[in-house]
Nucleic acid binder design. Structure first.
Lengths: 195, 195
DNA sequence: GTTTCTACGATGCAACTGCATCAGTACGAC
DNA sequence: GTCGTACTGATGCAGTTGCATCGTAGAAAC
């Protein structure tokens, strides 16, 4: 057996390059040549890992989806002793990608979101991610606010978080303002008095 | 004075073609040649109307922004006798582009939204639109729910509507489910009992 | 009818795209 | 060592892109 390469590792390395480029120039600015250069591999290597560009983009979206989901899950499970309500707040904040260091992820996500409206494979990956997120939030909300319609509230929260993220990205509102909105929404959800 | 052409009319005609193409293939599928063909003019005519492709896209975004804003405003002013709360509901529903016939507009809007994260001119047009919408909703909400923080609630409503629209576009939720979420949110905002 | 000037549309062009190809490389088994 | 093979990276190619160019057409002014 001759030279063997860590294929999965290389695919991730390339997906990383895709994300960095998508963040800087948008998804249309992602070309095979630039991806290869950014990932410090040859174009041949990229073509060996992914048969087509579409396959590469699909993998990159799956990759970033897993990263976000993992981070949210981690945030949920790392705060086991807290109340369910606090956990919901933390998870939603994490998901809204408001922190500077996750702004890039948000940009990439939005780029894929737009592309998904005209690409079935991408749309299915996105749908799978959202479904998983919604189930997680529904379960959390069922604990945090037993008297509410957990599924409905989960849909509301996901949509609100996505909208806020988008508005922050285009500088319509500041991250702080987005957090305010989120806090306010959660407080009202808990039925607590709002100041 | 030789042959004169209704420039503004032609620009709108071209912008229409841009929107139809963006809806079908996404913004990356919009090329000068295809736009010209779709608008039933020659490429030369397109180049005469817009010096560069960017200028064309910028105009198209402004154009569609005006269309949406106009429709929302019309919806607001055509129901003068109703309560402020009903008006807010109608306006939000109109803005969420949930009806089948406006799905195309939503797709185009999302395409521009993604592009705006890497294009300053587009981002500024979007920001202007959102600012106008937020002011309108703030004013409405101040009437409809005097005890609430109108500005905060307007930001919430806009983000929620945007998120819902996006989720409908990628088929994560149905238009009916989105309407449910919106209704529920508004009912809670009015402090009414939720069934 | 002639002139004059805008608008037109066909064509050209350099750059770039995704993808295919293929001689060469380097690693591991023997 | 040598050999076979999985891998590499340079190159080729057809198609597309945005933009520039330029001769022509056609509507007003006279």
């Amino acid at each position: 057996m001759p030279k063997l390469v860590d294929h999965e590792g290389r695919r991730r390395q390339i997906a990383d390059a895709v994300c960095r480029l998508a963040e800087e120039r948008g998804l249309e600015g992602v070309t095979l040549r630039d991806v290869a250069a950014r990932a410090d591999v040859s174009m041949g290597a990229v073509q060996r890992c992914f048969r087509t560009k579409d396959e590469m983009l699909t993998f990159a979206l799956t990759y970033i989806g897993e990263r976000v989901t993992t981070r949210v899950s981690a945030r949920i499970s790392e705060s086991p002793a807290q109340s369910a309500r606090t956990t919901v707040g933390h998870a939603a904040t994490e998901l809204s990608l408001l922190r500077q260091e996750h702004r890039a992820e948000a940009r990439v996500w939005l780029a894929f979101l737009a592309q998904a409206t005209v690409s079935r494979p991408l749309a299915e990956i996105l749908r799978a991610n959202y479904t998983a997120l919604q189930e997680a939030f529904t379960a959390l909300l069922a604990q945090a606010a037993p008297e509410a319609d957990a599924s409905l509230e989960a849909r509301t929260l996901l949509a609100l978080v996505d909208g806020l993220t988008t508005h922050v990205l285009i500088d319509h509102i500041s991250p702080a303002a987005a957090l305010d909105v989120l806090d306010h929404h959660l407080c009202r959800l808990w039925g607590e008095p709002q100041q």
